[in-house]
Design a binder for these strands. Structure first.
Ligand SMILES: [Zn+2]
Ligand SMILES: [Zn+2]
Ligand SMILES: [Zn+2]
Ligand SMILES: [Zn+2]
Lengths: 145, 145
DNA sequence: CTTGGTCAGGGGTCAG
DNA sequence: CTGACCCCTGACCAA
């Protein structure tokens, strides 16, 4: 069993730990450079820092970054990466215990951001479960993304 | 080396293995919008959808589309693009998932999914056993009469 | 339970 | 308008 498969199993067994990307709100694939982000924002941040790329905003520098338009303005995307706390030298943490991101020190801006992100997601889930019929998981396709 | 360059090299070395464009039969440059097509048909389809262009056939709507005359009738060219299955899915850039080539309507979707998963694991195991195997002299040769 | 590399494929460019 | 060429993106993998 590969690491990525193990990762999938881990996330499936711990759905409550799934957090959306702090930059673009797509489902995150874990913590990258200190922040929960998707694969895209992880790679984008890595490329930008590694090759020392610099971008210019065609608009007023206030572009909203979400899953659909995250590739439209590189300047504002990278600005948001930095704003939410992504750092190349982020200290690698050990295996987090359950809910560790809730009990971590609230002095950390990053953990506050994680908390807000989680609460936002919970609210969205709650609202969705009210307006839509609950969907039972299909055992046959439970490992599908 | 870019993908198209690599493909050209591959095509040069393996001319009989090239997959042709499903629309015009020119050598394809890979899979585009779900179908193996050439660069021309890829760009034509993209432009048509993006700018919502519509065309009219000067003939009876049955023009044959091949490499030589593909630019002669835009209406029939686009019609063939759609017919062979080209479509712009949800806007998603980056590498497609290995499961993205499954046909959504197929009743064997789940078994196809399992097959891809199995093949992936087999490939990984095979690769691991090759790179990890110690290079020993073949003992079978010596014991043979 | 992350990091860095890989590369298929989306999409822009610009002579022709 | 066309399409050869090239950059950018992000899913997957090895480690
Ligand atoms: Zn993201
Ligand atoms: Zn911007
Ligand atoms: Zn073609
Ligand atoms: Zn026609």
């Amino acid at each position: 069993m590969s690491w990525s498969q193990l990762h999938e199993v881990y996330w499936y067994d711990n759905p409550e730990k799934t957090i959306d990307c702090a930059v673009c709100n797509a489902p995150s694939s874990g913590r990258h450079y200190g922040v929960f982000t998707c694969e895209g924002c992880k790679c984008f941040f890595n490329r930008t820092v590694r090759y020392k790329l610099s971008y210019t905003c065609e608009s007023s520098g206030n572009c909203r970054i979400d899953r659909q338009n995250r590739t439209q303005c590189q300047h504002c995307r990278f600005e948001k990466c930095v704003k939410v706390g992504m750092r190349r030298d982020a200290i690698r943490r050990g295996r987090p215990t359950k809910y560790s991101y809730l009990s971590r020190s609230s002095k950390s801006f990053t953990s506050q951001y994680d908390l807000i992100t989680l609460l936002t997601q919970l609210e969205r889930s709650a609202r969705a479960s009210i307006t839509a019929a609950p969907k039972l998981p299909d055992p046959g396709v439970q490992s599908m993304p």
